[in-house]
Write a protein that binds this DNA or RNA. Structure first.
Lengths: 198, 198
DNA sequence: GGGTACATGTAATCAGTTACATGATTTA
DNA sequence: TAAATCATGTAACTGATTACATGTACCC
């Protein structure tokens, strides 16, 4: 009852506070921007709201400056540490869906002009290739670190997924550029989204 | 001004209505469940709220039964068709981040017991393998369809991503089972989440 | 003809986003 | 010292989720 259903965001904050010692919201913002933010970002305002919620739930302690900036410093409490541990101990957690806006557009390819879909594919290839390059750089630098934190393995997931995306969109681009039929841009096949899968 | 910032969800609904002709909210629910829902799902209540919004914006027309169930039937309007076309024409759209709860837990591996992380990895392998098998079945069935809708290509993306996930989590599981050092479960390396990437 | 599952909606809540607003530092 | 940028918050809005509530069809 003292834990009013924590969200993934809650645990993210909880974990960061647990790991980094006393932090302010701004510290959190910086931390997120440098690490988790690459696969789980949100606006800074949430990094003000969420710790406040957690403090209200007794999972963080809050201490406010009396002087100029009146910034709040958060620390994890025993309760917080336990909630975090319980979460970490539980092996099952939802599988996030893709929710990729690009994929959504592709899903409606039947309603679009083929050259627009091709343009989409090219744009996606470029965007994902950039991301991939970034992750490859990260991975390389991290590999050099002798006592690398186990959590940084998550970078590799980003890497694999971006590879998959580049591959996928490249295929789409290619198929649209040179469709099996032979014509450079085939006519719209059928109006409407695909009916059923499977 | 007549389009108060449509979301991706709006376009999803718009596209479905455009493609499927007149539909009720329940029809939408069924359609989503059979197709897009696999990579972009939401509760049915949104499929009641969103068409209403779109109708208010003039992008759908709404017609309500006077008899028993009083269900509402939606059709796309000229304005809706144009909004959809404009969206489809635009090649750039945000790249969705992973936001994977499993990855988030892994990110905090430094704060967890190694055997818990291993259990997580195994659970993830299983979940993603199931998903992968499902998508492979879909892809196979779709491949048999002679006039397959271009939008169904999105299934392949799901397939690639699940392959990537299975690969990733398998590696993690394996690395934890038999770490390079030799010990079956190494001591917690360092408290705290990874500091910086890159 | 009673139960169970499907169909169809509304209401309340809340997380997450956008926008606004201002205090402190640096730099030109 | 003016301008720009970094730091630090609050307020308002709204999309999305949870929960509730009831009507209709099917089946044993």
């Amino acid at each position: 009852m003292s834990t009013p259903t924590l969200t993934d965001t809650s645990y993210l904050v909880l974990g960061l506070v647990a790991g980094e010692g006393p932090v302010t919201s701004y510290d959190l913002k910086r931390l997120v921007g440098e690490s988790v933010g690459y696969f789980w970002s949100f606006p800074h305002s949430q990094l003000y709201a969420e710790p406040a919620r957690l403090a209200a739930a007794g999972l963080l302690s809050e201490e406010q400056e009396q002087s100029g900036r009146r910034r709040r410093t958060y620390r994890i409490t025993a309760g917080g540490r336990e909630a975090l541990a319980a979460w970490l101990r539980d092996p099952d957690c939802g599988m996030r869906e893709l929710r990729d806006p690009g994929l959504l557009k592709l899903f409606f390819a039947g309603l679009a002009e083929p050259e627009d879909v091709a343009a989409l594919a090219r744009a996606q290839v470029e965007a994902h290739a950039d991301r991939l390059a970034l992750y490859q750089r990260f991975e390389k630098e991290l590999a050099a670190d002798p006592d690398r934190d186990p959590g940084t393995a998550s970078v590799r997931m980003g890497l694999y997924v971006e590879q998959a995306a580049v591959r996928f969109w490249s295929e789409i681009a290619e198929e649209l550029g040179a469709p099996p039929g032979g014509a450079p841009t085939p006519p719209r096949s059928r109006p409407g989204p695909p009916r059923r899968w499977g």
